[in-house]
Amino acid sequence: MFAKILVGLDGSAAAQHALEQALDMAQLTHGVVTVLSVEEKLPAYAATVGEMEDEQAFKGEYFRKIHDQARRLAAAKGVPLQTQTVSGHAADQLVRTAREGGHTLLVIGHTGHSRLHNLFLGSTADRVVEHAPCPVLVTRQQAGGSS
């Protein structure tokens, strides 16, 4: 159980905490962790293809750095780790990747948007929980730092 764990990583503290939880879980289950980063907020209605390419390159470089950190962390815990970067909406891509990759657990961090934001847009966590094809673990950092 939980042999293929998918975790969303966007560079936030909440996502980093989710990654640590996923790695701990994988240590127990001898599982494999896949880190998925989603390039959100690419410029809509762009004027040139270059605008998109430059923004993608900027985000790609950012995700390369946090994936390197994730690999180091996974290596220290002895957990096999794969990384993927895709474009689109975070919730959609997490659900789609979980479904197509046959993942058995999806781990995401709770970032805590404002009530107004959640009222109109809903949180990524809400949408993932509603549509995911597998169990979802939503981690929340407590004030002291643990979940």
Binding site: Y45, A46, A47, T48, V49, M52, S87
Partner: peptide, 14 residues
Amino acid sequence: TSVAVVYAVMVETG
């Protein structure tokens, strides 16, 4: 036709 708008949408969908 905006190549850039089309490209942006297609990147989002893959």
